[in-house]
Design a protein around this nucleic acid. Structure first.
Lengths: 135, 135
DNA sequence: GGATTTCCGAGCACTTCACTCGGAATTCTA
DNA sequence: TAGAATTCCGAGTGAAGTGCTCGGAAATCC
């Protein structure tokens, strides 16, 4: 997440090397390398090799949501196996008598809409410590 | 969760043994034993020993939320360390420049209100497969 | 006294998470 | 064309969490 926000902050300035991000965000470069691979496979960033190379967001910041990032790194949002995102087929056998499932379904919706409602452009703006708006 | 909903369904019928719950919900009894210990320590259920004993909800079903259960079993709701629930002191050092924190704060609020908005009385009602209401 | 049931602590296989390491391929620059 | 910078790739590791088992002690009822 910090990586993506950092890239968003440098949107329009060409590619950014992981080395630079690692320094600014105080994160291990080798680890970022691994994370960015997943982001690249998900089509959220493009990499350019060689000296002066680096990474750049594949779309403009406001067209990438926190949900995109989370899904790229951690897979579909499903608090329980019986609520596979967008795949009602995998759903649990006990449906009929299991009030519990309603919990995970509502939770899933809630998480997804919270994450999908924040884009990188918003997050990249220099924070004036307000943090969360209610929701 | 299934355990608590099961107890809610038997509210008003005295104590319920884990053996019975395990059979109905098809869950290992020895495992439930361990979970219920945490629920008891959190004051959500009371246990009664001996033959004919069992567990009973400590409060009426509608006064126990899914959030209560989750917190009892998994601790405070905090998607990241920098957003310790109800303890702003533990918050991350980078606050000022880290747009990322807003993500976890909003997510936390969203999760908490989704879970706190469902009580056991609602969940215990026999489901007519509607599952989640939007939210 | 014996059956039932809660209570308690320890342990275990599996997975995930954050992270490291070594090295190959590509690209720019001197 | 050499060498530095950088992405790309696969494998491995330590700590923690999750779902679960096991053995046994204490309480309570008949």
């Amino acid at each position: 997440m910090r990586l993506m926000v950092d890239l968003a902050r440098h949107w329009g300035q060409g590619t950014v090397s992981l080395h630079a991000v690692a320094e600014r965000e105080d994160l291990p470069e080798a680890y970022l390398e691994q994370l960015v691979a997943a982001l690249r496979k998900a089509g959220l960033v493009n990499g350019k090799r060689g000296a002066g190379g680096g990474y750049i967001l594949a779309r403009e910041p406001r067209a990438i949501t926190a949900g995109d990032v989370v899904r790229a790194l951690e897979g579909p949002i499903e608090p329980q196996i019986c609520t596979a995102e967008g795949d009602p087929v995998l759903n649990c056998v006990r449906e009929q008598d299991c009030g519990t499932r309603a919990v995970w379904l509502r939770l899933q919706t809630s998480i997804a809409s919270a994450l999908d409602g924040m884009n990188l452009a918003e997050l990249a703006r220099p924070t004036r410590r307000e943090g969360a708006r209610s929701g």
